[in-house]
Design a protein around this nucleic acid. Structure first.
Lengths: 334, 334
DNA sequence: TTCGAGTATGACAACGTTATCTCATCGACC
DNA sequence: GGTCGATGAGATAACGTTGTCATACTCGAA
C-alpha cells in the first residue's frame, strides 16, 4: 500500500487534478457539488498532500522557523508551545533552529535554513532578535519576520512584547507599598534589552515614591541561579543591606533564596524576594515567589499569528503582564 | 537576486547536473577533478539544495520527527537539544510534534505528519512510546522508529534507555548506607513504565539489605510538584514516619522539600530527600537535591544516532545513569 | 441578439532535484 | 585481441503538486 496522490483523488472523485487542488487550497470558483465530491474522495482515501511537492510547485512551504539562542528550558518550551499551537491551527509546520549568537557561522546557518526549507516566515526570540547582521540577512531575503521582545530597530519588523518598563515599575511599586525603602535589584544579562528596560522601570518607581537611587543596590546578573546567589551575598553584606531584593528572573530569585537560606536570613521575615517571569520554578521553590507573570506561551502564539495573518506587513502587539503575589514578599519588620 | 539552483552550479562548474548531484550526495564514481570543480562552484554561488525538490525526487526527506506528550519543559528541552545536535551534524531537520496520548485523533495526526512530510524516521518519548495503536500505525507505514525508554514491546523497535531498576536500587542503597531504615517512596505517574521499574529497584535494594517492605511507605505520585507535596504530608503524618523520602522525580522532591519547610521539618537534619532526573531544578531548590542523573540530552543524541546510522535495523543502546549527592541527604539523627 | 464580465473547469508546463538508463573509457584477463 | 568488469559522465524521465492559459457556460445589459 502506497500513499495516495492527488491523481488518485481526482480519479475517485471523477474530476480533474486541478479541481482537487482548488478545493484543497480553498480557491474561488469551485461549485459545491465539486467540492463535496472531492472532499469525499479525500476522506475515503485518507489523502494528505505532499508538502514537498506543494513547496516545490508553489510559492509557499507551509513551514515557519523559530530561531532562538536562549538557555532557559521553560522559556523555550512555552514559546514553542504557543507557536506550535498556532501552527497546528493553520496546518503549518514549525522548524526549530537553535543557534549561537556568538558563532561566526550564524548568518550562514540562517541563510541555509531559509534556502533549504524555503520558509514562509521566521520568528526570533531574544537575544538573537537584536543581532544586526542576522536581521540584515533576513531583510535581504525579503522573508517575513516577527520578533519577540526586540530591543533595537523596533519598527523594522513585526513584533510582540510586554511592557518591561511598566512591569518592573509595578513590582518595585508593590515592594514600596509594603513599606520597603531599600530595594536591591539584580539585573539581567547585558545582551538582553529587557534587562535595561527593567532597570528603567525600577528607577521610575523609586523616583515616583521619592526614594533616592542608590547604585550600590544594583547588582549585575546573568539571569541564572549562580549570579542570583552571588548578588544576594554581595547585597546582604552591605553595611546597610536591602530589606527586599528584586531579581530580574525567577532563576536569579531562586539563587537569592538559596543564599538567604545559607546565610540564615529568613524569607520573607527578614528579606523579601521577588522574581520575574513566573516560570514553573516560582512555585517550586520555598517560599514560592512573588513575581511578574510574562505570558510566554501567548507571546509565541501571537508571534505565529502575526506571521500567518499579515505576512510581510509590519504589525505590533503588546501583551499584558501580571503581578503575582506569593509567599516570598512581606512588609519589612523593624 | 534569486536562489541558485543545481543548474546554475552545473553551468558554472562546466559539468552536467547529474554530476553535481553526485558530488552533493557523495556517490561513488566521481573523479577528484570533477568533485573539486563542483565544490568550488557551490561555494561561489553559496548554493543550498532545495529540500523540497530532494524530497520529491528522492526517497529521503532529510527530516525526522520527534513525537512527545510530556509536560516537563526540562525533559523536552534537553531531548530536543540532543536530537537537534545529531541532526545538525547530519544536516537533517527535526520536526517537533507535541501530541496528546488521550486524544482520539492521535493516530491520524501521526499518520498525517508522516504522509505530509515524508519523514525518514520517528523518535518517540514516554509515554507515547507505549501506545499500541500508535506503534501499529508506524509499523504499517514501515517507518524507522526509535523509542526512548519504552515500557512495552521492547524488541519491536530500536530503543535507548537507562536502567531504571538499577538507578532506583542505587539511590535506595545509598540512603540505606547512610543509616536510613524507613525510606518513603513517591512513585511516578502510572502511565510511565519507569515508575514501576523504579519501585522494583527500591524493593530490590531493601530486600538485599534485609529491610522489610512496608507498603504504607509507598505513595503514588504524578511526577509533579503537587503530588510530591501531598505525598510528603501523608508520609510525615504516619505514626512511624520515614527518615528519608525518595521521590521518583526532582519536581516531586521539590514538593517534598516545600512540605517539609511548611511543617517545620528541617532537611537534611530531620529528613533526607532524594529526587530523580537531575533537572535544573535539583540545584535551584534549597537544599540542593541528591538525585539520579538521567542523561536526557545524551538519550536524545543516541536516539537520533540510531535512526540515522541504522535506519530500520533494530538496535538498542543503554546509557549510564549517575548518583549525584548534594545537600538534601544525610545520616539520620537519633 | 450580442457582448462582456464573472464563474467554473481542465490541459499542460513548470518547480529543482534524484533515479534510471545509456554510453565511453580504461585495464586486466584468458 | 577481444571480452568483461570497474569507473566516470551525461540525457532524460520521473516525483506530486501549483501556476498559467485556454475553454465553456451563465447572466444581465446594450
Amino acid at each position: 500500500m502506497t500513499r495516495a496522490t492527488i491523481k488518485d483523488v481526482s480519479r475517485v472523485a471523477g474530476v480533474s487534478i486541478k479541481t482537487v487542488s482548488r478545493v484543497l487550497n480553498k480557491e474561488r470558483y469551485v461549485s459545491d457539488e465539486m467540492r463535496q465530491k472531492v472532499e469525499e474522495a479525500v476522506a475515503r482515501l485518507n489523502y494528505h498532500p505532499s508538502l514537498a511537492a506543494r513547496t516545490l510547485a508553489g510559492k509557499r512551504s507551509f513551514q515557519i522557523g523559530l530561531i532562538h539562542d536562549n538557555p532557559s528550558p521553560y522559556y523555550i518550551f512555552n514559546m514553542q508551545a504557543g507557536v506550535g499551537q498556532r501552527c497546528r491551527e493553520a496546518n503549518f509546520r514549525m522548524i526549530i533552529q537553535p543557534c549561537d549568537v556568538n558563532s561566526p557561522g550564524l548568518i550562514d546557518d540562517i541563510g541555509a535554513l531559509i534556502d533549504q526549507a524555503q520558509l514562509d516566515g521566521i520568528i526570533m526570540t531574544p537575544p538573537v532578535t537584536d543581532v544586526g547582521t542576522a536581521l540584515a540577512e533576513l531583510f535581504r531575503r525579503k522573508i517575513p519576520v516577527v520578533r519577540v521582545q526586540p530591543g533595537t530597530d523596533l519598527t523594522a519588523t513585526s513584533a510582540v512584547y510586554i511592557d518591561n518598563v511598566q512591569a518592573a515599575d509595578d513590582m518595585t511599586a508593590y515592594l514600596i507599598s509594603l513599606g520597603h525603602r531599600r530595594i536591591g535589584l539584580v539585573t539581567g544579562h547585558a545582551n538582553y534589552f529587557a534587562s535595561g528596560q527593567r532597570l528603567t522601570g525600577y528607577r521610575q518607581a523609586l523616583q515616583r515614591a521619592g526614594i533616592g537611587f542608590d547604585a550600590s543596590l544594583v547588582f549585575p546578573g546573568q539571569f541564572d541561579f549562580q549570579s542570583g546567589s552571588a548578588a544576594a551575598e554581595a547585597l546582604l553584606a552591605l553595611d546597610d543591606p536591602p530589606t527586599a531584593i528584586f531579581a530580574s528572573s525567577d532563576e536569579m530569585a531562586a539563587g537569592v533564596l538559596a543564599a538567604a537560606h545559607r546565610m540564615g536570613v529568613s524569607v520573607p521575615d527578614q528579606l523579601s524576594v521577588a522574581g520575574f517571569d513566573d516560570t514553573d520554578l516560582a512555585q517550586v521553590v520555598w517560599p514560592s515567589l512573588t513575581t511578574v507573570r510574562q505570558p510566554i506561551r501567548d507571546l509565541g502564539y501571537a508571534a505565529a499569528d502575526l506571521l500567518l495573518e499579515f505576512g510581510e506587513r509590519i504589525e505590533r502587539r503588546q501583551l499584558p503582564h501580571e503581578l503575582i503575589v506569593r509567599g516570598s514578599t512581606a512588609a519589612p519588620k523593624n
